[in-house]
Design a protein around this nucleic acid. Structure first.
Lengths: 120, 120
DNA sequence: TTGTCATTTCGTCGTTTGACGAAATAACAA
DNA sequence: TTGTTATTTCGTCAAACGACGAAATGACAA
């Protein structure tokens, strides 16, 4: 029950759900996720930590950046089903598409440039 | 997105999740649900209204009681999948079994007696 | 080592949430 | 009608949440 509630609480904030949807196409560094939202880096970091604590995302560190991604098939069943449910329910919404478009532009920009742009 | 968030917010409280699990075996009146928890009737009523607003439960009025139940197959896909996910994830936990046992005793008692017992 | 920079942690602040009891409502019983 | 009773609504309060900026951390670059 505790693990399940960690998932539902993580999903109860729309910005965290948007992060999960943004990660569908592949891993992103914190800089890129921050660029996608109009929030302070510390706010994004907190959201990522809540998602991570619920095991809805995994992280790895490389060079000077931290990358987050959706878990593989090794993830607990409850996690995989939660992610499937999120994607199935929201993949086609306008908001998700808008984020995907904005993300495309971000991915076309050099990482270092994106980070410096937001003074993080 | 708004509808989806109504569901995730409804699921983000453990007592509301317990209510959904308790309804698996069939409809229950507010009195019976209140008897299952150690909360004031007004608290349970609020929880039920949140679940109802998210369309996770349906209600009907009969005689002097209001009954709540899980929705049929007519429910939106997002709702059905959310309920499936909840049940699959938690049906076998100790907490759910304990609630089911307590519920069995409640169902063996006359409705009028249960209600008067809690001064609702 | 020292400085730079991406990220996280911490403390604060305003808002939301979940609990309660009291009062309102709505339906049945007398 | 009047009273009773099941449920909901409302106002209040403490705790949790989501935002922020400032400071801490940790890794690379000079």
């Amino acid at each position: 029950m505790r693990e399940f509630m960690a998932i539902t609480k993580a999903l109860s904030d729309p910005n965290r759900v948007r992060i999960l949807l943004a990660l569908r196409r592949g891993e992103l560094c914190v800089c890129q996720i921050t660029a996608l939202f109009d929030f302070a880096p510390s706010t994004i970091s907190k959201h990522l930590s809540i998602l991570h604590h619920a095991r809805l995302i995994l992280s790895r560190k490389s060079e000077r950046w931290v990358y987050y991604r959706l878990p593989e098939k090794t993830a607990p069943v409850a996690v995989r089903e939660a992610l499937d449910w999120v994607h199935k329910s929201l993949a086609k919404t306008d908001e998700t598409k808008a984020d995907a478009n904005k993300l495309k532009k971000i991915l076309n920009t050099d990482l270092a440039v994106i980070c410096r742009r937001q003074k993080c």
